[in-house]
């Protein structure tokens, strides 16, 4: 077995809306955290492995490239951006302004688009993100459009599709766990991380350093998390942290 310990990453996820960073809980109730420039500056100083910025404004708003360019100009770490990415020209613009990767969620099952994205920009530029909710029986289902649209069952057919598309990374996010501090989903990691041919990122519910370490030990290649890097204490006071 290949030892990949040194490449394992911990990725703060920040939600962008109306030029502010917010934190949601189970994709609901966005709470204002602060000014993106300041927050990114803190994460940059803490030398984080990578940053994931997700725009949660909704599908009707166009990407504000000038603003994005401004906020990532002081990010000397890899930056991934997601939020309504569904065209090759959007990806091209993102790469121009200092973003290295795009995160594709709702358009992930648009096969033609994904193929041309990978062909044009290389697989390492494209992260596929799958948001999951479990049904009453504990079966995982994929949701898109900010968790509002149920799409299909998350199973080995989905894995086969993702592997065939040759994405650079796959991020599995558990909606029901988001910002709950209930722990990353061990079962999903154990069942799925080894099935994917590309690095596997798990997200949703991270508690602390040891929970993250356990997820990495179980087979995740990276952990993405929001709440545990922006909240502190039982009342969720806003405090940016990033412990190695």
């Amino acid at each position: 077995m290949v030892n990949r310990e040194s490449d394992k990453r911990v990725i703060p996820t920040l939600l962008l809306k109306d030029r502010g960073f917010y934190k949601t809980k189970r994709f609901k109730n966005p709470r204002y955290l602060g000014d993106p420039i300041n927050i990114l500056k803190i994460f940059n100083e803490k030398e984080v492995d990578e940053i994931l910025i997700l725009d949660i404004s909704g599908s009707n708003s166009a990407i504000d490239y000038l603003y994005l360019k401004e906020i990532v100009s002081e990010c000397f770490m890899p930056v991934a951006y997601g939020g309504n990415i569904n065209s090759v020209s959007q990806i091209k613009e993102c790469l121009k302004i200092g973003i290295e990767k795009v995160c594709i969620c709702s358009a992930l099952f648009n096969e033609e688009f994904i193929k041309s994205a990978v062909l044009n920009f290389g697989s390492s530029t494209i992260i596929g993100k799958i948001d999951i909710k479990f049904d009453f029986f504990g079966t995982p289902y994929i949701y898109t459009n900010g968790g509002r649209k149920k799409v299909m069952k998350f199973d080995s057919e989905v894995v086969e599709y993702i592997n065939r598309m040759e994405l650079g990374e796959i991020c599995i996010n558990i909606i029901d766990k988001e910002a709950t501090f209930k722990g990353l989903d061990d079962t999903i990691i154990t069942d799925f991380s080894h099935q994917f041919s590309m690095p596997f990122i798990i997200s949703g519910g991270a508690i602390n350093k040891s929970d993250i370490q356990q997820a990495l030990n179980l087979g995740a290649d990276a952990v993405a998390a929001g709440a545990c890097f922006v909240y502190q204490g039982k009342h969720n006071a806003v405090l940016i942290s990033y412990e190695r």
């Binding site: 290949v2 990949r4 490449d7 990453r9 890899p78 041919s197 690095p199 290649d221």
Partner: peptide
């Protein structure tokens, strides 16, 4: 012998230089 590709992450380098280097690879 890599089982998952691309390789993505921070990797320490071995060099003859006095500084220590750690770079993001993908």
């Amino acid at each position: 012998g890599f089982s998952k590709l691309p390789r993505i992450g921070w990797v320490n380098l071995k060099t003859d230089m006095s500084e220590s280097f750690r770079f993001y690879h993908v």
